[in-house]
Each structure stands twice: as C-alpha cells, then as structure tokens.
Amino acid sequence: MNAFGSVRLSYQDETPADRGPRGELWARCSQSRTAAGKPTGKPQWRLVNAIRQRETMEQLRCQVGFCPAETDQGYIFLAGAAEDASHGAGEPVRTAQPPVCLTHLRPAIELCPHLRKGHVAFRARATSAWGVIGSRYRLTATGLEPLPAEDDDAPVAYGHPQLGWFLASQLVRELRDYEVVNLDDLVPTT
C-alpha cells in the first residue's frame, strides 16, 4: 500500500532503492561494480540488466563505458533501422536504449547484433524520462498473476493508472528537439 492508501505491487522487504522517483517498482538484479562504483563487464545486449539500464538512462551515461554521454550538441541515441520508420518526422521518439558517447559509438554498433543489421542515430538536445517497460501484474482471488507476456514490450507512461501494478525493467526516454545524424559526421571511420 502506498502513502495514499492505494494497493500496489511491492516487495515484502522493500527498500527505497526498489522504487524510482515516480513510485515505480523496479526489478531486482545483481551487478558487479568497481571500487569507484562503476559497473564492470561488457553489456550483454539481449540480457538487459535493469539496474545498469536504469542508471545509464537516469544519469544519461554511455551504455558501453558508463562515462558521461553528453556531447557539445546533445546526446546520441542509437536505434535499429526499422525503428526509424515507426515514427513520423518531428514526432517525439521513445527509446529504452541508453545514450552512447562519441568514443563508444562504433563499438556499440559492433557489439550489438541488432544494430549491426542496420541502425539510425538520433542527436537529441532535449530528452526526459517518459515511462518504463517491464511486466504487468494483477491481483486475483488467489494472489498475484502476471498478465500475458506479449504485453511486456509495451511501454507504460508515468502517470498511467496501472503503474502501481508494474514491475519495471527498463526506463524509457522521450527524445524531443532531435535530428537524425550520420555517424560518419560524428566519428570519422579510421
């Protein structure tokens, strides 16, 4: 139950770190870190670590090196080539892919099988947290029940009435004031 008396999904031993700033419950997972607190290891593209993804998106850090991702003209976000056709020109773009710094643009494409098949790069001057991707649950007479898995990829916006029954695994950002850019203009090939 939250501060307003509403029933919502929770951990029995929940801590403040389990919830995001808008009250969303986050999936728990382990993560190795250096003594300085930086995540270790290479990203595993098909096995998204909810903690690493959330931190890179909240802090706008590079998804490969966890270094600051800001450039002098905004943030670079990569998407698969098919995703470019899914939105109209000038419409906001929503993505669960963290930004990439200029140093790691080419390695990100080389490491990610999805991006090697084709990609588009967005340079965004304005971006904000929009919602989450994860698993939806409902309370039944016999306890908690997950909703069908085909709904798992659909992002849920912050403020959605069902957000309290959602276990978040990825943060979604909305890109505004962006342009599609050519990687060769950002990082010349060597």
Results as ranks from 00 to 15, higher is better:
81 A>W: 04
81 A>L: 12
83 E>S: 13
83 E>T: 08
87 H>W: 15
88 G>A: 14
91 E>D: 14
91 E>C: 08
92 P>Q: 02
92 P>M: 01
92 P>N: 01
93 V>H: 14
93 V>Y: 14
93 V>F: 14
94 R>M: 04
96 A>D: 05
96 A>Q: 03
96 A>G: 09
97 Q>V: 04
99 P>C: 02
100 V>P: 03
101 C>P: 08
102 L>P: 04
102 L>M: 12
103 T>Q: 14
103 T>L: 15
103 T>V: 14
104 H>Y: 07
104 H>K: 12
105 L>D: 04
106 R>D: 05
106 R>M: 10
106 R>H: 10
107 P>A: 07
107 P>H: 08
108 A>R: 15
108 A>M: 12
109 I>C: 03
109 I>K: 05
109 I>Q: 00
110 E>A: 15
112 C>K: 12
113 P>C: 11
113 P>W: 03
113 P>R: 07
113 P>E: 09
114 H>Y: 11
114 H>N: 13
114 H>I: 12
115 L>E: 07
116 R>H: 05
116 R>E: 13
116 R>T: 09
118 G>A: 04
119 H>T: 04
120 V>C: 13
121 A>N: 00
121 A>E: 00
122 F>L: 02
123 R>H: 01
123 R>Y: 02
124 A>S: 01
125 R>T: 00
125 R>P: 01
127 T>V: 09
